[in-house]
Every structure is written in structure tokens, then in C-alpha cells.
Amino acid sequence: MHIHILAVGQRMPQWISEGYNYYVKRLSNKFISLRLIEVPAARRTKNSNVTKWHQEESERLLAAIPINSVVIACDICGIAWSTEKVASCMQEWMNEGKSIAIFIGGPDGLAPACLNRANYQWSLSPLTLPHGLVRIVLAEQIYRVSTLLSGHPYHRG
């Protein structure tokens, strides 16, 4: 199964890249591949507004969705899924031959166009998390799901 994290923003701090890459390496040689696709954030100026930024970023995210993907938007107003629920859904999507595309918004969140396009909205926490940290949390959860599905003891619930 191919999982694509589609994230607004580039040039993350080194600790974010290291944390994300740690779990990607642990996923290697498993039945799940994880790929990060970064899209540039909209240029914020005094004369532009959030609606314009959202539109630019949403166009970039929507254009990056791989064919035949289930689309999940990370959003604080989404549903809080347990690791077991994510594993169950991923198993179902793998059986159907689907890929997964997960949106991470920019500093102003996701535009309505991205939320409307998403098949699911997933809340990782009721807290507002730094967008870079969300990359690490997603990578860890995807790794955890892969161990759960393969019966590895990393996931202990």
C-alpha cells in the first residue's frame, strides 16, 4: 500500500526531518510505503488574505493527489480515530487496492475545497499541533499500524 502525506510547507527544522525519517526507515521492507510530498505555502503579504492563501494551497494539494486514493484531511474538527480503527480502515483499503493521501494544511489550516474533497477528516488531537510535528505523528502512527497489521509487538495498545 502506498501512503502519501501531502503537506503544505517546505524547509522544516532538522529535528522534524530526522523524526519523520526515523519512522520511514523503520517502515522499509514492509507492505506499506510512505512518501512525503511537500507543496509550497502561499506567499503571505500585507495585501493578500487567508482566502487567497487557502485557494493557492488547496490547488497545490488537490493537484498532488495520486490516482485511486482515499483522501484524509488532518483537521482539528475531524473524528478522533484509535490506532486500531486506522489499522482496520487501512486493511480494508489495502484489500481494495487503494492508496491513501493525507492532507496536512499550512499555517492557516486547510481550505474548504480540501476538506470537501476528503473522504475522511481525522483529528489527531484537540490541541493545535505544529504542522511539522504532525508529519512525525503521522509517520509514527503509520509505522504502528503496520506493526499491528503484521502482528509485531511494537503495538501494545
Rank of each mutant, 00 (worst) to 15 (best):
P66E: 00
A64T: 02
L124T: 10
K98I: 02
A139I: 09
N29M: 07
W122T: 02
S123W: 07
G132A: 07
R44P: 03
S123T: 05
T83P: 00
E18I: 08
R135D: 09
Q121E: 13
T45M: 14
P130M: 14
Q14R: 15
T45A: 12
R135F: 11
W93F: 13
S28A: 08
T51H: 12
Y20V: 12
E59P: 07
Y120H: 13
A73F: 12
V8Q: 06
K30A: 12
I102G: 04
L127Q: 15
M1N: 09
G132I: 06
S125P: 14
L62D: 07
G157P: 00
C74F: 03
R117F: 06
F31M: 05
R60V: 08
A80W: 08
W15P: 15
Y143A: 00
P130D: 14
E96W: 04
P112T: 05
H155Q: 15
L148R: 06
V86D: 09
A111F: 08
V24T: 11
N116M: 11
G157C: 01
R60W: 08
Q14C: 11
G157A: 03
D108K: 12
C89P: 00
G78S: 09
K25G: 06
T45R: 15
W93N: 03
E38A: 04
I136C: 03
I5R: 03
G97K: 06
N119C: 05
S33A: 03
A7E: 01
E38F: 07
K52D: 09
S125H: 14
S125F: 12
V24G: 04
H2C: 00
R35E: 07
S150T: 14
G151P: 00
A73Q: 12
N29A: 13
N21V: 09
G151V: 02
G157D: 07
R135N: 11
S33K: 05
V70P: 01
M94V: 08
R35P: 00
R144T: 01
W81M: 13
W93L: 07
S17Y: 01
Y23D: 12
E18R: 13
W122I: 03
R144F: 00
A41T: 13
I5P: 03
E56V: 14
I65H: 03
G132V: 04
V137Y: 08
Q55Y: 08
N95T: 03
I76W: 06
E57T: 04
E96Q: 08
Q14A: 15
M12N: 13
I72T: 01
G19R: 14
K30C: 12
I142R: 07
G109Q: 08
Y22Q: 06
G78M: 11
A73T: 11
G109E: 06
V70R: 10
A7N: 03
W81Q: 10
S125T: 11
Y120F: 14
S69Q: 06
L62I: 14
R135Q: 12
H152K: 15
R44C: 10
I142H: 08
P130F: 13
P107F: 05
R11M: 06
L34P: 11
I102C: 06
L27W: 00
R144G: 00
C89L: 10
G9S: 04
L149N: 02
C77I: 01
